[in-house]
């Protein structure tokens, strides 16, 4: 069976003056896949993600996200994706329910739809009781689950997660990954960056960047096998150690 290609990137180049942040990147991400995007600080991950989200224009190359062109159809791209990062999550001075309503509104969902879908979401997350609590008064683990659920509330084709689990405790981190699995299982493609190498092993495919280039890309098992090592940490160390200053 031919799987849908959700993200297609061929020879993506992004330059800032003379600095080449992305140097001929090529990869495909398929529907329902968990795609791990790794690399040292400054390897060019954020630059590439901004292009894939329609926030920055590529210098050259062929890029399609959810079927839309990254040069001319950035607004359509933005409607087809969800985004969550460690830093940006929710409005602390709004309640749980207000945050859901707010984001639903931003994505142009109908009031009726937002109302029924938020009931369902609150129920699924076990947050019905705390729907009127301010975000700043609920624990980090809950906030994170809510932020993620809101990022996929408008049922996007792809959700981008930029270091979603930094600094949280190991139990919460795992509960979060369970949500990611469920989301991918439901058909939404997950594009995730992380510094935790064990999390790289949760991905179907891992792409490692160094100095603006892709230096390795495969399933975690194949990567470990190929480098003759037992964990992703070793793989990462072998391919990404040429850190530039």
């Amino acid at each position: 069976m031919e799987r849908d290609v959700i993200i297609e990137v061929k020879d993506l180049v992004k330059k800032f003056d003379h600095f080449v942040a992305n140097d001929h990147l090529s990869f495909k991400v398929y529907g329902g896949e968990i795609f791990g995007f790794l690399g040292a600080n400054g390897a060019g991950k954020t630059t590439a993600i901004r292009i894939l989200c329609g926030l920055s224009k590529p210098t050259s190359g062929f890029i399609r996200v959810a079927g839309y062109d990254a040069y001319s159809q950035t607004e359509q791209i933005k409607k087809s994706i969800g985004y969550m990062s460690q830093k940006f999550s929710l409005y602390e001075d709004l309640t749980v329910y207000e945050n859901i309503r707010f984001y639903g509104g931003i994505y142009g969902l109908r009031t009726e739809y937002i109302r029924s879908k938020s009931e369902e979401l609150l129920h699924r997350l076990g947050m019905t009781e705390i729907r009127n609590k301010l975000i700043k008064d609920i624990p980090t683990g809950w906030r994170q689950k809510l932020a993620f659920s809101i990022a996929v509330f408008h049922n996007p084709r792809i959700v981008f997660l930029d270091e979603p689990t930094g600094g949280v405790d190991p139990v919460t981190r795992r509960q979060f990954w369970k949500l990611i699995y469920e989301t991918a299982h439901s058909g939404i493609t997950v594009f995730v960056t992380t510094h935790y190498m064990d999390e790289a092993e949760y991905c179907d495919k891992v792409c490692i960047m160094s100095e603006g280039k892709i230096v390795a890309m495969d399933s975690p098992d194949k990567l470990k096998e190929g480098f003759g090592v037992t964990n992703m940490d070793e793989v990462f160390f072998k391919v990404a150690r040429n850190v530039t200053y």
């Binding site: 040292a40 600080n41 390897a43 270091e163 510094h195 990404a240 850190v243």
Partner: peptide, 10 residues
Amino acid sequence: TTGVDAVSRR
């Protein structure tokens, strides 16, 4: 080492 990549951490 928070927010630092695995290579720099090592």
